[in-house]
Simulated scan of single mutants.
Amino acid sequence: MYTALGAAELKQATRSTQRVSNFLGSCWGAFQEWRKRERLRAELYGLNNRELMDIGITRGEIEYFASNGGIDPRGIRTAE
């Protein structure tokens, strides 16, 4: 059975589709950011203590840096 949609129904369907698309886009962006933090965490844990000292952090600060990538406790803004 074929039913033609009126202008109002079509507009509502389009709005619903846009909401779902925006939601999925937000989820995808959050997932990508999470993966980026996980990669950073793995890279930092892979460094030895001397290499960590060279970049100015300690092993105890790795979780902080991985969770707050754009924040530097020394007051220096990191490039992203």
Rank of each mutant, 00 (worst) to 15 (best):
Q12H: 09
Y64H: 14
Y64T: 14
R59W: 08
I55S: 12
A42W: 07
A66P: 06
G70F: 15
E63F: 07
R15M: 06
A30K: 13
D54Q: 13
R15I: 06
E9Y: 01
A8Q: 07
A66Q: 15
M1L: 09
E33C: 03
R15L: 12
N22P: 00
W28E: 11
R19N: 11
G75A: 08
A13K: 11
Y64P: 01
R59P: 04
E33V: 08
A42S: 05
R41D: 02
S16D: 12
I71C: 15
E80D: 11
A8K: 13
I62N: 01
A79C: 04
A66Y: 13
T3Y: 14
Y2N: 11
T14D: 01
G29K: 09
Y2G: 04
G46I: 03
M1T: 03
I71M: 12
I55D: 11
C27K: 13
R77K: 11
L47Y: 03
V20I: 14
G56L: 01
T78Q: 10
A7V: 05
C27R: 06
G29V: 07
G46H: 03
G70S: 12
E61M: 15
V20D: 06
E38S: 07
L24T: 04
F65P: 00
T3I: 15
I76E: 09
G6C: 04
L40Q: 00
R39N: 03
E43F: 05
L47T: 01
R77G: 04
A79P: 01
A30C: 05
I71A: 10
E51G: 01
